[in-house]
Amino acid sequence: MKLSGTLRDLSGRLGHEFRDPSLLVRALTHGSRGGEADNQRLEFLGDRVLGLVVAEALLEADPGADEGRIAPRFNALVRRETCAEVARSVDLGAGLKLGRSEMIGGGRKKEALLADAMEAVIAAVYLDGGLEAARAVILGLWQDRIAAAPEDARDAKSALQEWAQARGLTPPDYVLIGREGPDHQPRFVIEARLSTGEAERAEGATKRAAEHAAAAALLGRLE
């Protein structure tokens, strides 16, 4: 089986040449295709492989850290939003095989589909080349995020809401200020606002990421 030009390009961006190209094709096949082997089982496996490699990397980067310091960083790195951001960084959406309904509904840009496919692709690399191949791909795509993962990776939106409620204020508002960049690598600008007038803006690859960044920035000023 030969890969199409689009999938060959994707393979290059991943940094892995598939001996069995059908694994990559399956990893990119959504259940909406119907009648074809989809990526659900690969997604399940890829989630575990990603978790192992990220956990190892965090422990190696910070040998003295206890579980309480490692766990929030780990959760931030393997959550759906991060997987979708990584998927966008390699334009994984261009290679997705979707059913007609998902195609019409903009499935190539959906966070959930991108995150699931990213995990499935990791599993495909693992099955094709083993753990070392999967580790190389994951670290190549996640290394900057691992290095930048904050020690305090708590849910900033929840923390800001708790701060407001403790002072008798209404929950914060999150306002979309702008969107820039191509479809496969968008940047959203969100402003977090309190009813008392305080506000901070931040940007992110998804609206959710930008909201969390804005909430964290506002919390930082308030605290």
Rank of each mutant, 00 (worst) to 15 (best):
L58R: 02
G68A: 14
A202P: 12
A27V: 11
R26E: 15
F18C: 02
D183H: 15
F44D: 15
R13I: 12
V49Q: 00
A192T: 05
S158A: 15
A112I: 14
L98Y: 00
Q143C: 12
G31K: 11
D173E: 15
L141I: 01
S22P: 09
R193T: 01
A57D: 02
V54N: 04
S22I: 14
A148K: 11
G178V: 10
F44N: 15
D128N: 04
G46Q: 04
R73E: 07
E102V: 12
D116I: 12
V54T: 02
L139A: 07
G129E: 02
R19F: 08
A209E: 07
L77Y: 01
L194N: 08
G140Y: 00
P21R: 09
E203C: 12
H16E: 03
V78N: 05
R41G: 15
A216P: 09
A124R: 02
V137T: 04
A153K: 01
A147Q: 12
G107P: 05
R88F: 02
L7Y: 04
K109M: 13
G46H: 03
V137F: 03
T206A: 06
I146E: 09
A37E: 15
D20F: 10
W142S: 05
V49L: 01
V90C: 04
L98F: 02
E36G: 09
D38A: 07
D152A: 06
S158E: 15
K110Q: 14
L92I: 01
H16K: 09
L7R: 07
T196D: 07
G178N: 12
Q185I: 11
R179E: 14
L24Y: 03
L14H: 01
K207G: 04
L28T: 09
L176G: 11
A153H: 05
H212C: 08
R48F: 12
A120F: 03
G93C: 00
V137D: 03
R208N: 15
C83P: 03
L24N: 03
P21Q: 09
R201G: 08
K157Q: 11
A216T: 04
A217D: 09
K110P: 10
A55R: 06
D62Q: 11
S11D: 07
I122F: 03
V189F: 14
R48S: 11
R26Q: 14
G34F: 10
R187V: 11
K207Y: 06
A61Q: 07
R13C: 10
L219A: 00
A37K: 12
G220Q: 13
A159I: 09
F44K: 13
T82H: 05
A217P: 13
A71Q: 12
R179S: 12
G15K: 04
T82F: 05
I177V: 15
G51H: 06
R19I: 07
L194T: 07
G197F: 06
G68D: 15
K110E: 13
D155Q: 12
E60P: 13
P150K: 04
I190L: 07
R88Y: 03
